[in-house]
């Protein structure tokens, strides 16, 4: 059938990861400069840094949207290929290269939807065709 591809009927492969919080000065600046409802703040908050091996396993590339689901909630964010831990000379010597199975997300309401942070959260990540939801779409009863 023209226009229909077989992979449309297959579930996107997923991967168990641990989501860990990090602080991003540019995101903090955007919250103060443009406000927490701004696109600038949302763009810097809805990001997950994934190890290249994890990106490959879920069939995603740098900049693709991914769905992250924990027992507390689900969010859609942009996947970024992590620089990994290999850049740092000391780390490389100590053998801490890459971080497969671990995703890093900036501290924000999108991360907190997944569970209590900064304690690491167990979640599943998979490629997504959905859009990134705004704060008001994520939280029931929320009025802007």
């Amino acid at each position: 059938m023209p226009g229909i591809k077989i992979d449309q009927f297959l579930a996107a492969p997923d991967r168990e990861i641990t989501v860990v919080e990090y602080q991003d000065i540019f995101q903090t600046e955007a919250a103060l400069k443009h406000g927490k409802f701004s696109k600038e703040y949302q763009d810097l908050s809805t990001v997950i840094l994934l190890d290249p091996a994890d990106l490959k396993k879920i069939g995603a590339s740098d900049g693709d949207l991914v769905k992250i689901s924990s027992e507390h909630g689900t969010v859609v964010v942009t996947a970024k290929k992590s620089e990994g831990d290999t850049k740092h000379e000391v780390m490389a010597k100590e053998g801490h290269q890459g971080h497969p199975g671990v995703g890093y997300m900036p501290a924000s309401v999108w991360l907190n939807i997944l569970g209590s942070t900064p304690a690491p959260v167990s979640a599943k990540v998979s490629r997504s065709q959905q859009k990134i939801y705004t704060v008001s779409e994520l939280i029931p009863g929320f009025k802007v």
């Binding site: 103060l32 927490k36 309401v109 907190n112 029931p140 929320f142």
Partner: peptide
């Protein structure tokens, strides 16, 4: 509060905020 604990939007309590900045809690 809502940025730290989004699920708090559902709790059955009145919420008052005093803040110099725009916060997500204002939405609840």
């Amino acid at each position: 509060l809502i940025s730290s604990l989004p699920q708090a939007c559902d709790i059955d309590a009145r919420i008052i905020i005093i803040d110099p900045n725009e916060t997500l809690t204002a939405g609840c």
